[in-house]
Nucleic acid binder design. Structure first.
Lengths: 135, 135
DNA sequence: TTGAACTGGTTTAGTCTTGAACTACCTGGA
DNA sequence: TCCAGGTAGTTCAAGACTAAACCAGTTCAA
């Protein structure tokens, strides 16, 4: 694969993601969530601290402050001081947050699945394996 | 593949792309280009009008106005009125623009290739085939 | 214990992005 | 010909984003 081919591959991939986001933005918004907020929510269980989340999602810390604040105001997230390190804010998803997250992820998955539908089952499994190696 | 799996797959893919962008941002900037401007440049040959470009790259028209203006000011692009339709601005890449584009794409490809290096040659070919079906 | 260096999170201030409204132009039907 | 409805591109104001500076709490070597 030449270098320009790799860039082309990258660009195809990028366009795919952007168009899936554009497709679901409105329906996700109806849940009271922005798409980026949905991504944040979806990683809270695995990365329960803002700084960790920011690193995991490749976004600056101040942006995370904003998202967490909005998610908290919307009742999707609670935060409590970590007893072991008083600088840290441990994030906890509320039941409403979990529900919104699951609905949002379903919307995203449906839109993506519509694209994925162009692949056979075994091709989908292949793709999954390849992407996991890349991440 | 369940719906949540598809969302997971999507999220893996998204994180991969964002981290590749973050990696190359500085070096691409040294060429006098933002990463998004690089994407714009790379599609100019195929979509020589701003509205077309905006649609192809899944971005709003006003953003395209800004990018085109910057690329023009940087000497990477020229624009001329389309004789057949005076509303249209036909975009033409300058030699400097083409050079910057090629260098930028190489940087992007290198960063992506570093990730791709985790895959065997046949796996890379598989990935390419799968993404082409999806786009 | 002290304090220098570090880390988590927030604030601020300035930049970037984009929805809505606009101008200029095109098209097709009366 | 004329005009109503549509498209290309821009402008502007408002909202989103983030780099830099900051505060609070932690760590660890002296």
């Amino acid at each position: 694969m030449t270098k320009i081919d790799a860039a082309r591959l990258w660009s195809l991939n990028h366009r795919l993601l952007m168009s899936v986001i554009a497709t679901v933005a409105e329906d996700v918004g109806a849940l009271g969530l922005e798409v980026k907020e949905l991504f944040v929510l979806s990683e809270v269980d695995e990365h329960p601290y803002p700084a960790e989340l920011a690193a995991a999602l490749v976004m600056p810390k101040p942006s995370m402050t904003v998202y967490v604040k909005r998610l908290e105001a919307a009742g999707f997230l609670r935060r409590e001081i970590d007893a072991a390190d008083l600088r840290k804010h441990r994030l906890l998803m509320t039941p409403a947050g979990r529900k919104a997250m699951q609905r949002g992820l379903t919307l995203l998955a449906d839109a993506f699945a519509e694209r994925l539908g162009r692949l056979s089952g075994s091709e989908q499994a292949q793709l999954r394996g390849l992407l996991e190696k890349l991440c």
